[in-house]
């Protein structure tokens, strides 16, 4: 068990590309921290530097109270689960799980006991003598987890472990991984590009974009107070609506001349971005905003109305029991629905 600290860690590839700007943060002991961002944002690079698979250009990585920059991956006491499982195809499940322990020089009886214990935890007991090729995707993923568990590491590293699974299995494994991590109480770093995974699994989310950290926070913080337009549009499905607007005379005006309620501008004037989540507005005859619905998407539990507000794309989510039709309608905002962002940098205002 250990906390993980990155101190101004930076990664520059030999060709000069900066994969990760100097980043500093601490993951407290026992937390599951999700690194999320689009592909190429540096999240995998960060994970691989913690694992020791990638050189650290600058800065320090510590696991527990030990700086691990120059320590071999095998000696960092970590375990990693890969996207394609990376099981050894010629070894049985039991040998796959025990291989790391064998390399540590643990004796056979002890290895067998640990493997059996992990297999029981993961419902793999009956598969111990099979080869990975005889297992389904979900079972292989479990074996990969088993291989991580038996090492009793200080830190779990997950590199998009669920990306190769189908949607249903993904939901199930998400819960299993979360439950397992809670039970073992082991610190974990989890890389994904899927914001749903990030929101549902994380104790703490780190949102990355283009090699820098956009925001660090609990899922709730990230959702309720996105630090930038990038975070606002990346986290949440459907994504937050972002409208170009004008601030002046203490209020925010949309291009058509409608005033956005709830928007305190704190003296900011000029171009501004207004963010409103699709589920934070509701159709209402007395609503302040006009909305023109073009397309209705049925999702079962809710409906998505896609259309235009003040000439810009806008979406609204309504519960399934609320009737909806294309054409003009009025929308009312729920409480605390408006987020304001700087128009150039995309930083949050206020």
């Amino acid at each position: 068990m250990a906390q993980v600290t990155l101190n101004a860690v930076r990664k520059v590839y030999p060709n000069g590309a900066e994969a990760l700007e100097p980043s500093t943060f601490t993951i407290p002991d026992g937390e599951l921290c999700v690194l999320v961002g689009p592909s190429g944002c540096g999240k995998s690079t960060m994970l691989r530097m913690v694992a020791g698979l990638e050189d650290i250009t600058e800065g320090e990585v510590s696991i527990g109270d030990r700086v691990v920059n120059d320590i071999d991956p095998a000696d960092r006491n970590i375990a990693m689960v890969f996207q394609n499982y990376a099981l050894y195809p010629h070894m049985t499940v039991a040998r796959n799980m025990g291989y790391g322990l064998k390399n540590r020089g643990m004796d056979r009886g002890q290895i067998a006991a640990k493997v059996r214990e992990a297999a029981e935890m993961l419902n793999l007991t009956e598969f111990l003598d099979r080869r990975p090729s005889q297992l389904s995707g979900g079972q292989r993923q479990r074996v990969a987890m088993g291989r991580a568990i038996v090492r009793e590491p200080d830190l779990f590293l997950f590199d998009e472990p669920l990306s190769n699974l189908d949607a249903k299995l993904r939901n199930q494994m998400r819960i299993e991984i979360r439950a397992l991590q809670r039970r073992l109480g082991t610190t974990a770093m989890y890389v994904t590009h899927d914001q749903v995974e990030a929101m549902t699994m994380a104790d703490r989310i780190i949102v990355l974009s283009n090699g820098h950290i956009e925001q660090i926070g609990t899922p709730n913080e990230i959702y309720e107070h996105p630090a930038s337009t990038f975070v606002a549009s990346f986290m949440g499905a459907p994504p937050m609506n972002l409208l170009d607007a004008e601030a002046g005379q203490g209020r925010v005006t949309l291009p058509g001349g409608e005033v956005v309620p709830q928007a305190g501008v704190n003296g900011h004037t000029g171009a501004i971005k207004v963010g409103i989540r699709p589920e934070d507005v509701a159709p209402s005859a007395q609503g302040d905003l006009s909305f023109n619905v073009d397309i209705i998407e049925e999702l079962g539990a809710q409906r998505l109305l896609h259309g235009k507000m003040a000439g810009q794309d806008f979406s609204v989510a309504v519960p399934k029991d609320q009737e909806a039709a294309t054409g003009e309608m009025r929308l009312a905002l729920k409480a605390n629905a408006v987020h304001l962002f700087d128009a150039d940098q995309g930083r949050r205002l206020g």
């Binding site: 694992a51 698979l53 890969f82 394609n84 050894y88 010629h90 291989y99 790391g100 390399n103 540590r104």
Partner: peptide, 26 residues
């Protein structure tokens, strides 16, 4: 696959072990 080498590195297999335990059987 590259991940196999990385998994072996984390599992503590050095170059010789990786060659004999993983690569030759594969």
């Amino acid at each position: 696959p590259e991940e196999l080498i990385e998994a072996a590195r984390i599992d503590g297999a050095g170059p010789v072990k990786f060659f004999i335990d993983i690569l030759v059987p594969l």
